[in-house]
């Protein structure tokens, strides 16, 4: 079973690298989002520094949605999903491994890029470190929630937008605690740990529950 799980993880990373352009597309999208904001807001450095964490979080949220709709749809179209269901691995675990690979391929590069892009928003060191840490803690929740949307819309031709509409409301708590933890990192009334722990809790809950929801959706769609 370990061999099968490892093979699935490796295959997902390979596909992300060869088809999606891997990390590059997500990072470029992230960069463009971050660059657009100062043009829209104007060159007020204090304001940019204050809203910097929020901008990084919204950019990361949208960037994680890129390609997420293909997480299961591609496998459903070419028949791979049927075959995966004939393996010894439960469908829930298959979804989990696919999400993990998706996170490594798309979110991890964003987390590494965040401190660099945050400089363009005049954020100070504390805020940069805090935001990067909250992205690390919170993006797993986004990926796993996204899997539910991906599963529900897998059989649809243009399910990507619908998937985003379904998932973005669920991502709001993650966004709230992510941004509040980032803000707490650079001074504020609440300690950094409180919202960070809630964020970690949200991620753990999503990792534990979302695969069951996604697997149930896939089984129903197959009928």
């Amino acid at each position: 079973m370990t061999r099968a799980l490892a093979a699935l993880f490796k295959r997902e990373l390979r596909l992300a690298h060869r088809i999606g352009g891997g990390a590059a597309i997500g990072i470029v999208f992230f960069l463009i989002m971050v660059t657009i904001v100062p043009f829209a807001i104007g060159p007020d450095l204090n304001l940019l520094a204050r809203i910097g964490p929020a901008v990084l979080w919204i950019a990361a949220l949208l960037a994680t949605l890129l390609g997420q709709d293909r997480l299961l749809q591609a496998d459903m179209e070419d028949g791979s999903l049927d075959l995966l269901r004939l393996s010894e691995i439960p469908l829930e675990l298959i979804v989990t491994v696919k999400c993990m690979a998706h996170w490594v391929a798309t979110c991890l590069p964003l987390i590494f890029a965040a401190p660099l892009f945050g400089l363009m928003l005049a954020m100070d060191v504390d805020a940069l470190a805090g935001t990067t840490l909250t992205l690390l803690a919170g993006t797993p929740a986004l990926t796993f929630l996204g899997a539910i949307g991906a599963a529900l819309t897998a059989a649809m031709r243009r399910g990507g937008l619908l998937s985003a509409i379904l998932i973005l409301p669920l991502a709001i708590p993650v966004l709230i605690f992510g941004v509040s933890a980032s803000a707490a990192a650079s001074g504020g009334t609440i300690p950094f740990a409180t919202p960070l722990l809630i964020l970690l809790g949200l991620s753990l809950a999503a990792i534990a529950l979302a695969p069951f929801a996604a697997a149930a959706a896939i089984r129903l769609l197959g009928e």
Partner: peptide, 27 residues
């Protein structure tokens, strides 16, 4: 069971060898 449906279950971006290696490990 092996199931051979209408779709071939192949990933165009992977080589034939990689496709078969993957299914051998999965199934």
């Amino acid at each position: 069971a092996h199931y051979l449906g209408h779709a071939d279950g192949l990933k165009g971006a992977l080589t034939v060898q990689e496709n078969l290696q993957f299914w051998a490990a999965m199934l």
